[in-house]
Design a protein around this nucleic acid. Structure first.
Lengths: 192, 192, 192, 192
DNA sequence: TATGAATGAGGGTTCATTCAT
DNA sequence: CATGAATGAACCCTCATTCAT
């Protein structure tokens, strides 16, 4: 293969990101290698380094993109929603459905949980999401829709639930549950 | 250093496992290296291979041990318990407390979630736990203590919740919640 | 940036040479890279190859230019000089002063002494300079101004002295000495 | 080739150093590559890194060894010498003869003059040598054997002379001169 | 059992050079 | 003339694994 030279760096960069997402998702950061990514992207090794400083940069770019995407989706879903039940419903449904249809994006973030870099970004992201849930609950309690409780604590639990859901998707696809069932449990509990 | 000549190979093997657990927990599988493990265990590199076929074998042994340990703990806690509320309380409390005090063991399993090998063992383990929860719920529904529902589905949700909790421990220690709050939500839900 | 459209290619070529001299002087041949040179020259990488066959060609052109320059300076200084003392004084003064004020040019030649290519050109240059010194001495001996000696041998020594001076400039600026002191030693020696 | 395992790391390390000296001398630091060194030493690439942290470490070890060697030689030659003429004779003869018979060692240090690392060590070494020459001259002047002069300045000149001699060896073998001729010039000068 | 020197494939990265535009 | 995206060989270095002792 000689010079492809499609003259549009943006095009190439996009292709790299796309392919890299797949490769990182399949192999994880450590196992993925630049040679494979380059081949999959139909580009030379050196070509990769035209667009990304190094492997880490490529990974981080991908992850940030992914987190931004979810944040945007969430904001869109929650805007104009003033009913706490509707809000928590939206959030859970969105999370569950997102996870179901974006396995690769999630694998990207979750493949290596204790991952050394990009950790701060992830932490910030998770904190923000927890705060979001907390506010919905607080609002629900204030409006008398939800039982009186410690919103921060309950938010942590629901956040963990969603996080666990996401992990389930990574490990075993069969562990999925329907958003409605989840909501039912969250809202009504187990007891009669 | 010449032959350390422990009482027995078993002694040495134990020490290796102990050290390896720490190293894998701190660095993750890919980042951990055999030289470090051997040095930390006060053994030669070659010595490692006397007790374990290869790196994977060492890791897998460790993981199986860890999973067996949890299973045993759970069986102990649930035996002689016939009240569904008490049972689910036991399970959740156990899981949460175990996670809080065994961060290292969890890191071992969870550091690289979609990890290529050992997956089958993990899957089996998780399936078993899900089944356990399911049975408690089914029992609770049958006894009229829990609301009528799809036990399998609800089990998945609670399982995810616990899984998420475990992940929270790996990533950020602050996301922890008290077992009681969790139980309260699970049992009573959010609604008034 | 599109075509810069200098008056002529000659203009561009000059700028490249100028910039390349600085870069080679600062980084040495191996460490210098074409991208840096091109950027510094305000030209594209490809543009470089319009004027020079390859990196080596660029370096060689530079070096030849530099050697020619010194030769010219020397010829100018020595022409019309018939007194051996005056001649050796001229040569030494010129060499020392040149070295002091043209550090970059010298770095260019000297950065990598045993450098594989361009060696022949350098050798020829050095031989010529040695011959020049030799002739001055021979003339001085013939005229009865210098002590009877082996001019070729003494020329080698003085040549080495100047060469060492030049190296001193490259490595440590402080090792410089005044041309007069040098001359004094050469002419009168250490002994009383 | 399988494991040579000669069980004596010291032996291997010595062989590596020997071979590396040759390779660095022939190709210079930048051009020399670890694969070549390893092959020449009859060892694997990885083997190299058992004894040296990295390429730089290997080079630096070599250089320090070389400088230490010269320093020792010089100390040996100068001890018990109280006559300035004899001392300067010793130093020059030693330097010249050393250069003649240790071309490789010198190439090692001098191949890349403006070399980024190891520079401090070299500078210290050179400074020390200059100081040594200076003291001999100062002593000679004090004893009334040498003409009254600025010893520091004259030392720089003689130091440069020796340095240039060393460089001549690197570039062209033919530029060598006999130690006696050199001494004669230094002591008596050119003038009648 | 135990050692640790030795292996070598493979990883990340650089950079002189080319060529379609 | 000029561009700069693209190439790919080659570099330094790591590390799981082996084996003579």
């Amino acid at each position: 293969m000689v010079h492809m030279n499609n003259r549009s760096g943006t095009e190439t960069k996009k292709r790299i990101l796309q392919v890299a997402a797949e490769v990182f998702a399949e192999y994880g950061y450590a196992e993925a290698n630049m040679r494979l990514i380059s081949r999959s992207a139909g580009i030379s090794v050196g070509g990769l380094y035209l667009y990304f400083k190094d492997k880490e940069d490529l990974y981080l770019t991908l992850m940030n993109e992914s987190l931004d995407y979810i944040n945007q989706k969430t904001r869109d879903a929650l805007k104009d929603t003033h009913d706490p039940i509707e809000a928590i419903t939206s959030l859970i449904t969105l999370s569950v459905n997102y996870a179901k249809t974006n396995r690769e994006r999630i694998l990207l973030q979750g493949r290596e949980l204790g991952f050394s870099f990009g950790l701060e970004v992830k932490k910030k992201f998770f904190k923000e999401r927890r705060r979001l849930i907390e506010e919905i609950i607080r609002d629900g309690v204030a409006k008398g829709v939800f039982r009186s409780c410690d919103p921060a604590e309950k938010a942590k639990i629901i956040f963990s639930l969603l996080r666990g859901f996401v992990v389930s998707i990574i490990i075993d696809d069969e562990a999925l549950f329907a958003a409605e069932e989840c909501l039912d449990l969250i809202l009504n509990g187990l007891l009669k």
